[in-house]
Design a protein around this nucleic acid. Structure first.
Lengths: 216, 216
DNA sequence: GTCTATATTCAGATAGAC
DNA sequence: GTCTATCTGAATATAGAC
């Protein structure tokens, strides 16, 4: 009875079995996808037996959903840390440029993140709850943060800040999707800074700032 | 020897076995994904034996790539038919609105298309050539058509039409991805017309057209 | 060309010893 | 709690008759 609590005695930094299993599961699921990942390999990589895996996770689906939840809420969450300090001390265009840069850096140069996107979108038909987690942990906070920031910039005079936020994020996400996720860099090249600058022009230029050569 | 050409004698409208197999394969791959689709079920749905499937397609990968190629180049190609007639007789904003409407109708209300996007993105890591086909058949023509159209509209005075085209298409694709592919309609609602109008405002409004209330 | 039957491998999941 | 050993079903692919 009292011999069963060797779990939280002084094992604060021995990684729990569940963690080890999740680590192995991450590698496998990200590499092979859901269906092609075998519980045999998950167990082998974690260095435990298959029975142990099944003692910690009811079945393959449960392991997968637990993993995706963990990834969405820890590994791949950051990005939208627009501190108020930064927001206030710069021009909106500079703030947005910094944000776009951070966002693209965090995603495009992180092969694991790209693989995660492939996996999650690919399984979004069979695991709609996981897609929902992705939206709540990543897309929704992102859109809301940008939206609120844009709404607070009276200089920009944006008629619909939430729509502007979706244009901003949508353009960048689509860029990542095309260039990296779908490997379109060579067949459909586009310089990153060129796109970002054009996007910022569209969002930030108030009337009178655009060239105005001929009539009107 | 000469008994082997019963293939193209008068069978012009008896569907060939390969077609029947591809039809069955489409249903299976779209429903279950690549790894979880079994050649047994493909054969059963097509009404042929497994050996027949393997006589027409070298293996599962070959069947899958043949299928995706066919889908990308026939089933899911249309969309960007901006006839010159339409282009010339309307205001750019109206042309773009029509285009956005057609595009969203064609994708958002077509569950097969959404499933196809999930499948292709999900397998883009393991089948990069297929992602490339997707880009060449769908994304590239789309971006180029919009880009050329925008470039020809001198009224719009767009500094970088190709970037504008990417913003236009990227915003719409991301909208589809969020609302439909990832099932974000309830958790992150956005009215379609509101987004499209805001997007058109951003792209089409020349200087002086925006509200200009206070100073400047 | 198409079938039936089968070889072979491997999957998810569990029983029972320790 | 963790292991070894195993059940059961299903997967890809092929051999060989017709």
């Amino acid at each position: 009875m009292d011999s069963s609590d060797n779990n939280h005695r002084h094992s604060q930094r021995l990684p729990e079995k569940a963690e080890v299993i999740l680590d192995g599961a991450m590698r496998e699921f990200l590499e092979f996808g859901y269906a092609a990942t075998s519980m045999d390999r998950v167990a082998a990589i974690a260095g435990v037996s298959k029975a142990t895996v099944y003692r910690h996770f009811q079945n393959k689906e449960a392991l997968f959903t637990a993993l995706i939840q963990q990834l969405a809420q820890t590994q791949f969450q950051p990005v939208f840390n627009l501190k108020q300090a930064e927001q206030l001390q710069s021009e909106p265009r500079l703030v947005l440029q910094t944000l776009a840069s951070k966002m693209l850096d965090n995603i495009m140069e992180n092969e694991q993140m790209l693989t995660f996107m492939r996996l999650l979108i690919g399984e979004s038909g069979r695991f709609p709850e996981l897609a929902h987690i992705f939206i709540r942990s990543l897309e929704k906070p992102g859109i809301e943060a940008v939206s609120q920031y844009l709404a607070a910039q009276s200089k920009l005079q944006l008629a619909d800040p939430e729509v502007s936020a979706r244009i901003f994020i949508g353009t960048l996400v689509h860029f990542v999707l095309l260039q990296k996720v779908l490997h379109g860099q060579e067949s459909l090249p586009m310089e990153r800074d060129r796109l970002v600058n054009g996007l910022l022009d569209l969002i930030c230029l108030r009337s009178g700032d655009r060239l105005n050569p001929t009539g009107i």
